[in-house]
């Protein structure tokens, strides 16, 4: 049976992610120290709460180098929510916070006004459909992450900050909130990230996890 390492550093809904991974027929290894990372060859990085505190905990547990290293080696890595945000260079949440720098770009507040200048509610909480960037069409694996998922499927978002990839080809899908495009999923090589929670997105989310685990 396939096995995925779930990085367990004290910030993240490891329970829900583990149950969702098991639901799609994969074993989970909770990884609580960087030494254990070599036991598997694909990883999920959860994350909830503030960017700075997530990074602090990753550094305290010694995961920073390990994660950068597996990304470099081309092992599949999926960051979820703040777990995706920390893949980027920097966040502006509570001052400037350095991320893992695996993907170029930054993380900033979702605008609190819509494109007409009217107020919108923050956090952005709810189910949203995605628009897929099939632009260059030369990245077949991008298709695989969302393969067999209905184009009209919705995913569950809950966040106040959003990623802004430096290279727009990094973005796989976006959603719209208050008229603004919000990064929904990213990919660079075998490093993937979803701003939404696949483990909380019903059947469509389970299918996405299934796809990631079989890439």
């Amino acid at each position: 049976m396939r096995k995925v390492g779930l990085i367990d550093y004290g910030s993240g809904n490891t329970f829900s992610l583990a149950r969702a991974v098991e639901k799609v027929g994969c074993d989970v290894l909770l990884i609580s120290s960087p030494e254990e990372m070599s036991k598997v060859d694909r990883y999920i990085l959860p994350g909830v709460g503030a960017f700075g505190s997530v990074m602090q905990k990753l550094e305290n547990k010694g995961f920073k180098e390990g994660l950068i290293s597996v990304a470099r080696q081309g092992k599949p890595l999926l960051g979820v929510c703040v777990g995706m945000q920390v893949l980027f260079d920097v966040s502006h949440e509570f001052g400037e916070q350095e991320g893992l720098g695996v993907i170029g770009g930054e993380v900033d507040k979702i605008p609190n006004l819509d494109i007409n200048g009217s107020q919108i509610r923050i956090p952005h909480i709810g189910w949203a459909q995605l628009t897929y960037e099939h632009g260059d069409g030369n990245s077949p694996l991008i298709g695989e992450l969302f393969e067999t998922i209905n184009d009209r499927a919705s995913f569950y978002f809950v966040h106040s900050f959003a990623a802004l990839p430096a290279d727009e080809n990094i973005s796989v899908a976006h959603t719209i909130y208050g008229g603004h495009p919000i990064t929904g999923a990213v990919r660079k090589g075998m490093v993937f990230g979803t701003q939404f929670h696949p483990e909380k997105s019903g059947i469509a989310g389970l299918q996405l996890l299934n796809n990631f685990l079989r890439l």
Partner: peptide
């Protein structure tokens, strides 16, 4: 609050 009319509810 104009934009909320179009917002998806739960």
């Amino acid at each position: 609050w104009s934009a909320l009319k179009q917002k998806r509810i739960r």
